[in-house]
Design a protein around this nucleic acid. Structure first.
Lengths: 128, 128
DNA sequence: CGGAATCCTGACAGATACTG
DNA sequence: CAGTATCTGTCAGGATTCCG
């Protein structure tokens, strides 16, 4: 464990915090999670198939998988109604809502600077 | 043009924006990019190997690759000094700085709610 | 309806070796 | 020092099928 790479004090981030935070972000900042966050924030309480239709392009596998992870992390609550046909509803917890709010900044940033990125990319590619 | 996305079912997000934004976020929100963003924000101008030492666990391949992408997207500037031995310096552009700021919210969220997530996860796992 | 189980593939990360 | 090149294994994720 303690390989401790001779850290020259200056710019290094505390490895523990770094580990934990990037770990959390890594699980939370993927495409489907963000889209589900967005959809659930706007839609309130939604069923499985409704989510599937709302998030364009998601496979049922990834929908299940992502929802499970989000449930596990306490971002969404899952309510099973014992009826036939089955009815399962998902909604954001307060934790999920707060994350959604935090992501708002990144979302806006992306929407705002989209063209600048495209431009930078085009320029870079043009330079070879 | 007023395309005004004829929402067939309630909660759908405009596919174009969704596409573009998630695309941008997808490239920008990966582990190494975030860590480099953080390190560069704090460290100012840094050399290749300094970055390698600052970001614990990154391979030189991923460092190169991630820096290239960030440069392509206009997030970092790369300056080659024609000396021997070679000296290449990286620093955030204003675009990169703004992204770093935007991510700050998510970063803080993760740091703040880390324990709640761990707790939720433990509870979930305990329930089977 | 809301999943779980299975199979399959291509993208990508790690290790290694070489270079201007 | 700051990369490039290659090879290889892993694994995320799509398609498909089946079930309570």
């Amino acid at each position: 464990m303690s390989v401790q790479f001779q850290a020259p004090d200056d710019v290094t981030i505390d490895p523990r915090i770094e580990q934990l935070v990037t770990d959390v972000i890594g699980r939370v900042a993927d495409k489907w999670t963000m889209l589900l966050l967005e959809v659930l924030e706007q839609g309130g309480t939604l069923r499985f198939t409704e989510l599937g239709r709302a998030v364009d392009g998601i496979s049922q596998k990834m929908l299940t998988q992502t929802l499970r992870q989000m449930e596990r992390d306490g971002l969404v609550s899952r309510t099973v109604h014992p009826v036939v046909p089955p009815k399962v509803e998902y909604r954001l917890t307060d934790l999920g809502l707060s994350l959604s709010a935090a992501f708002c900044g990144v979302w806006n940033w992306a929407a705002t600077h989209l063209d600048r990125i495209e431009a930078a990319r085009a320029a870079f590619d043009a330079r070879g």
